[in-house]
Write a protein that binds this DNA or RNA. Structure first.
Lengths: 170, 170
DNA sequence: ACTTTAAGTCAGCGTTGTTGACATTCCAAT
DNA sequence: ATTGGAATGTCAACAACGCTGACTTAAAGT
């Protein structure tokens, strides 16, 4: 049977939430929810000749001003060639400033310009509005569970980067 | 202040879980978790000249055998041209069978072949393994919260389709 | 029978991911 | 001081997968 792997009891505790059907529901929920998660920023970006890649770069530059290209690379999990194409357009369009490092002139430190900050605010306001609405509907306990599951789904390396970002903001 | 929108109390209940910082954490958690969520299938598909789009098509054809192209279109939220390219390669490679409708000959009904079922099993086994591990780590209450937040994040139309899929499987 | 609507296909384009090759610039170690 | 390695950037090519537009075929409405 499909649910054989979970149709057992361990120490008297029900494992019904681990059936293949429950897991499949979670998988589909992730799929549909991620579409909602990116829908609002996607709408804003379409027509600006920008996409999700630009949004992600702007988000993390905003969170860690002065970050290097290489650091951003690790966070975003893409190749430098891919990121470079995105950063080049953002710099050309005056949304991001790239300053040569003082201690190490090989590094480029990235900052949002005023225009970049304005777009970041527009994008994150829209995305936060949806998150806030969802959080409000379900309450703090559900939100805590939500974050626990997401964290457990990450690869260990991503988990470390996620926590590092949290720590850097208190 | 950044947290002005949530630094209030309503009816004596704390809204600290709605601060901009909490929402930002949720946004980043979604970003990193979705990478983990797709990592295993992506690994399996890479080199097969297939991608996520093929995975999604296979997943939903498996869940609703005999579904039409148009129905799949609505679930996946892409254009028929985009889906068609994916379906064409899957049919050519003998993973999906496309049968002309009997009542309405315009429609094509989609079914997985044995080979298609085998790949579906390989992909969903990998993805479920990660989900199961995450679920096990956090327990049933957290999982319930996780699903509540995801559902609240969906657009209403996606929410309906998500629930319809659940109902069709009991 | 003629028109309209719907389903599916084909062709072409844009974004964004990939790899590979290569230049530059700088730090560090010998 | 020269050499080796690391960080960055550029150019080129390619794959996956969104999109639009134009088209065929089949069903449905008048």
């Amino acid at each position: 049977m499909a649910d054989a792997s979970a149709s057992q009891v361990l120490g008297g505790e029900s494992l019904l939430y681990l059936t293949d059907e429950q897991l499949r529901q979670g998988i589909e929920a992730m799929f549909f929810a991620y579409r909602g998660f990116t829908a609002d920023p996607d709408r804003i970006l379409q027509g600006l000749s920008y996409g999700r890649a630009h949004h992600r770069a702007i988000h993390f530059i905003h969170c860690a001003p002065g970050t290097t290209v290489n650091n951003l690379l690790n966070i975003l999990g893409v190749t430098k060639q891919s990121l470079n194409r995105v950063l080049r357009t953002l710099v050309e369009d005056g949304l991001v400033e790239s300053r040569v490092g003082r201690a190490d002139k090989r590094e480029r430190h990235l900052y949002l310009t005023e225009a970049g900050d304005a777009l970041e605010k527009q994008l994150s306001d829209a995305q936060r509005a949806r998150m806030r609405s969802a959080y409000r509907q379900v309450g703090p306990e559900a939100v805590a569970g939500f974050k626990q599951v997401l964290e457990a789904m990450m690869d260990p390396e991503m988990q470390r980067q996620y926590q590092r970002l949290r720590e850097n903001r208190g």
